[in-house]
Amino acid sequence: MKQEIIIAGFGGQGVLSMGKILAYSGLMEGMEVSWMPSYGPEQRGGTANVTVILSDSPISSPILNEYDVAIILNQPSMDKFESRVKPGGILIYDGYGINGEIKRKDIRVYRVDAMDAATEMKNEKAFNMLILGGLLKIVPIVKMENVLLGLKKSLPERHHKLIPMNEAAIKKGMEIICEM
């Protein structure tokens, strides 16, 4: 079992931290993991992306030309990564961030309206966990208990009180993802 995943969006959307939680969850699951961020000035706006690989066997390249799963959170990232999903692969996007049409017909496309849900929850910081929930529904590569352990590992202790909120957002994301 191996999943090669790209998460791409605006800086500040929680792209890197979502990847980090996914990587930690894989670690808790006993898998091999790699987390390779774009590390430019993206924190201050612009596009940010991270490649996360979870695998049962040792991981070779942390840098990939095509992905099993692409999680796309804004239009510039869609323009860049839509063509790089493997045929038969999965594309997950947030309805709010994408205005163009998705051209690929040879992949499975899912939509999570995470921005809307986060606004409804009056917690925009839940955005990336809603997306993560959507991913885990479609690609259940790590067990929920290990995601919670991963959250615990990747968040500093002073933020551990936020774990129930994150868990709720993940579960909500699992409910609202739909196939297009």
Partner: peptide
């Protein structure tokens, strides 16, 4: 290099 410096692994 920047890849090995910035990437996270076990």
């Amino acid at each position: 290099d920047g890849i090995i410096g910035q990437m996270m692994e076990k």
